[in-house]
Amino acid sequence: MSLTTIAVEHLSKTFGHSPVLQDVGFEIRAGERVALVGPSGSGKSTLLRHLVGLTKANRHSDSRVTVMDRCIQRRGRLARGSRAQRCRTGYIFQQFNLVGRLSVMTNVLIGRLGCMPRWRALIGRFTPEEHEMALRSLKRVGLEELAHQRANTLSGGQMQRVAIARVLMQDADIILADEPIASLDPRSAREVMDTLQRINEEDGRTIVVSLHQVDYARDYCQRAIALKHGQVYFDGPIDQLTDIRLAYLYANAELDKPHESRFPASAPTALRVAG
């Protein structure tokens, strides 16, 4: 396997008449921890969705998304066998997307469905080894004692850690996390980011995480890719994403973030002290 695990070339996406991604391209090496930053509406989620084929690129562009040397989509068409390829990529959502009426244990187990034989996936018969693996995954996110509780009884932070356990169950080499901490309180957010970091360091799984809090990106990631108006604005080591560059990144983005521009200039610092 080559060092490059995710390669995106000339990716463009238009919703209706508004371009969301314009000629985006980058490469990510195996084992990296990459933060995807940028103002809301800059195309972070859309970009991540392209990497697993949940969204297809524009038809006429010369785009290509390759994950672990296998083509996921090319010129806006999903490649054959991209479903099987998706088993190797875990996805974490802002809204957790657990199946609320099933137990925590089952929610972790269903991460395995993609790589199970067809008939066994259909009737949902999991082997004892898979049960053991699910328990191990839950233990790694620190929730093994909640295994038999219903998923919709958990707190937000716990739900997101179950979602991480589901990705571990998938044994995914790449974990894509779309705003995983955006709807969590600071403590739960730290727990989730700590868990992701630990998984990256212990297992060497590649992690791409979109964040709108740059502080978290600086604390947890080595590299940042910044998007602005659907284009790559910055791609490099996180310490080179200086405050001045950040100011430019978020400048003229008021249209996308009306609530921030309404605050007086002193408000952000005041809020930070309070937080």
Binding site: Q85, C87, F93, G114
Partner: peptide, 10 residues
């Protein structure tokens, strides 16, 4: 549904 589809479930 998307959560399961993203993990390659049939």
């Amino acid at each position: 549904v998307e959560a399961l589809r993203s993990s390659g479930t049939r």
